[in-house]
Simulated scan of single mutants.
Amino acid sequence: MFLRVQIIFLTLLFIGCGQSKESKQKTGNDRKEEAAESVKSKGDKKVILFYGNSITAGYQLDMDQAFPALIQKRIDSLGLNYQTINAGLSGETSAGGKSRIDWVLRTVPDIFFLELGANDGLRGLPLEETYKNLQDIIDAVEKENPEVKIIIAGMMVPPNLGEDYTSEFKNLFPSLAKENDAIYIPFLLEGVAGNPELNLGDGIHPTPEGHKIVAETVWKYLKPLL
Rank of each mutant, 00 (worst) to 15 (best):
M1S: 13
M1R: 03
M1K: 02
R4A: 12
V5W: 14
Q6S: 06
Q6D: 03
I7A: 11
I8Y: 07
F9V: 07
L12H: 05
F14V: 01
F14K: 08
I15G: 03
I15T: 05
G16M: 04
G16V: 06
G16P: 04
G18E: 05
Q19A: 12
S20F: 13
K21T: 08
E22I: 13
K26F: 15
T27R: 09
T27G: 10
K32W: 05
K32T: 01
E34W: 14
A35W: 08
K40H: 10
S41L: 15
K42Y: 11
G43L: 13
K46W: 11
V47W: 09
Y51W: 10
G52P: 06
N53G: 13
S54T: 03
T56G: 11
A57L: 11
Y59N: 07
Q60R: 14
Q60V: 11
Q60H: 14
D62S: 15
Q65N: 13
Q65M: 14
A66N: 05
A66L: 09
F67C: 06
P68L: 05
P68W: 03
Q72Y: 13
R74E: 10
N81T: 10
N81Y: 14
Q83Y: 12
T84W: 04
N86P: 07
A87I: 02
L89K: 10
G91T: 03
E92L: 12
S94P: 03
A95T: 06
A95K: 14
G97W: 07
K98T: 02
K98M: 09
K98E: 05
S99P: 06
I101G: 12
D102T: 12
D102F: 09
V104M: 08
V104Q: 02
L105H: 05
T107M: 12
V108S: 04
V108A: 05
P109E: 03
F113S: 07
L116K: 05
A118E: 00
A118S: 11
N119A: 07
L125W: 00
P126L: 02
P126W: 01
K132I: 01
N133G: 03
I138D: 00
I138S: 00
I138T: 00
A140M: 01
V141H: 04
N145Q: 00
N145G: 03
V148H: 00
K149T: 00
G154K: 09
M155R: 01
M155A: 13
P158C: 06
P158H: 07
L161D: 01
G162M: 08
E163Y: 15
E163M: 15
E163L: 15
D164K: 15
K170P: 01
F173P: 02
S175E: 05
L176D: 00
A177N: 02
E179Y: 02
N180V: 00
D181Y: 01
A182K: 03
I183M: 10
P186T: 10
P186W: 14
P186I: 12
L188I: 15
L188S: 10
E190P: 04
G194Y: 06
N195W: 08
P196W: 04
N199R: 03
D202A: 11
H205Q: 10
P208R: 08
E209P: 09
E209A: 15
H211Y: 13
I213P: 03
I213T: 09
A215W: 04
E216S: 14
T217V: 15
V218M: 13
V218L: 10
W219F: 13
L222C: 07
L225E: 02
